[in-house]
């Protein structure tokens, strides 16, 4: 190996080393939580702290799974995020196609939509809470589902619009000449082509709904509590049960982490499409 090659390899190794340090930084808190969740209470409270439990115990997970709120919250999270995503994608896709193909609403509409993304959630939560309180909608699925759809609608329309924009008009015209109706065209030609885009948008919408906390904690009660809300109750109520806190945190993040790793490609395309252009 000549010295030039060695130098290049050394440089590559150096850069990889920096990335490795960042990797440790990004993994450290997650690893700490994972280790805390399998420690015995004595080990959780040890000073100085110990990294690895002598013998892993899964009591925290058992306590979590036996908590009657756990199953409810998990089902609620899945149901609310799932339905909200479905509604947002269906309504959003039709709107995005119309805006992109027919220029519905001119240039104003897309920009107005984008502006709604800038509204801080804390600002709208008081009136939404008061209204829901008056009409007895607190602690219902409908309330949270509609709220989540609205929160993500603008982003999803923008995202899907950029995916529809990549679709050549000629393709649609050819199908129209062959006697395809507008509706048939949308479902048979347009949708299959933009499916990856729809998948990306759906994934992002689902994750955002799953992660949402502010609206969930104010608008839900014991019936419609979601996973982040459940996790937060372990923080405030029994701040000392760090095992339960960790276990709940990990379990509620697990679906999102798995989705991220499996569908990384879609996520990247969705995140970069929507905003860079």
């Amino acid at each position: 190996m000549n010295s030039r090659k060695l130098k290049i390899h050394l440089f590559t190794g150096f850069k990889t080393g920096i990335l490795l340090l960042f990797f440790i930084f990004f993994m450290l808190p997650i690893v700490w939580v994972a280790l805390t969740s399998i420690k015995r209470p004595v080990e959780q409270m040890a000073i100085p702290p110990i990294w690895f439990p002598e013998q892993p115990v899964f009591d925290s997970y058992l306590t979590l799974f036996q908590n009657p709120d756990f199953a409810t919250s998990l089902v609620n999270s899945l149901l609310i995020s799932g339905v909200a995503t479905l509604i947002t994608i269906v309504i959003g896709a039709i709107a995005a196609y119309s805006i992109e193909r027919f220029r519905t609403g001119g240039r104003m509409l897309p920009n107005l939509l984008l502006m709604t993304r800038m509204i801080p959630p804390v600002v709208v939560i008081v009136p939404i809470f008061l209204l829901a309180y008056r009409v007895n909608l607190l602690d219902t699925y409908v309330l949270l589902i509609i709220t989540y759809s609205a929160l993500n609608m603008a982003l999803i329309i923008w995202l899907l619009r950029s995916f529809f924009a990549q679709l050549p008009v000629e393709m649609e015209e050819a199908a129209m000449i062959d006697g395809c109706s507008r509706i048939g065209l949308f479902f048979r030609i347009v949708l299959p082509v933009v499916m990856p885009g729809i998948a990306a948008a759906g994934l992002i919408c689902f994750i955002f709904c799953w992660n949402e906390f502010l609206f969930a904690v104010t608008l839900t009660g014991s019936h419609t509590k979601t996973m982040p809300v459940l996790t937060s109750t372990f923080v405030s109520e029994r701040g000392l049960d760090r095992g339960l806190m960790s276990a709940s945190g990990l379990v509620s993040s697990l679906p999102v982490i798995v989705l991220t790793i499996v569908f990384q490609r879609y996520l990247v395309s969705g995140l970069t499409q929507g905003s860079v252009k």
Binding site: P29, V33, N211, P228, V235, M245, G249, V256, I257
Partner: peptide, 9 residues
Amino acid sequence: MMVPVVVGV
């Protein structure tokens, strides 16, 4: 992509 609440925890 992690739940912000869990990041806080």
